[in-house]
Amino acid sequence: MIRLDNVTKVYPDGTEAVKEMSFEVGKGEFCVLLGTSGCGKTTTMKMINRLISITGGNIYIDGVDNAKIDENELRRSIGYAIQEIGLFPHMTVGQNIETVPVLKGWPKAQRKERAEQLLELVGMAPREFIGKYPSELSGGQRQRVGVARALGADPPVLLMDEPFGAIDPITRTKLQDEFLNIQQEIKKTIIFVTHDIFEAIKMGDKIVLMKDGRLVQYDTPANLLYKPENKFVENFFGADQAIKKALEEISKRRQSE
């Protein structure tokens, strides 16, 4: 579904943000890009919808080179969710969710129906919330709306950049669980950026572990924990025994589900 082939990003000042990244994400898979700040994970994600231009290699979406697709068309066909601050404050919840459908020229009735349907999906009563402004919502509610907006025009692919990053831990866990349930239903192909190893192990079908712009290991959470390919991977997940234990718990719980 999404294939990165030798993807490289070098900025004009010579900084190499991403180096020769190659990996493939299958249809309906939940792929997490994991790494410390500045490792190039967000840059990699933003090259998929061309918010950042690629300087080497290719990215294929359903076999089509994304450089050959009109950038606005490309972006309208890929859902994009960021931290809760990303909602447009001057638009209502409904208008935010309808952003992409409006750009795509959907008729009004269909847009409204879609917005209501998506609010239901993320567990918010459409009647109560559709006319509210982001400033009237809690952080968790805003984040739910952010997810609903990303799903606006029912795109096959979702890009999510630390979408639950700015939320308190309790709400965060709840949102993660809810989103995994939603994913069971909608089966989108997801690229999810995070620096939180717990979140990565919990959410991802597969994890791309990155370091200094390079892919270190691309594998299932279980393999990253039990079969690390090198010392870096081993230390990343297992430097602290308590953390390792907790991660293994999460991993086991996932497999038993």
């Binding site: 918010l51 972006r75 960021i82 601050i85 990303g86």
Partner: peptide
């Protein structure tokens, strides 16, 4: 961040 959000949604 607002401008990037707009562009990411596919706005010209």
């Amino acid at each position: 961040a607002m401008i990037e959000a707009g562009r990411a949604m596919g706005m010209t």
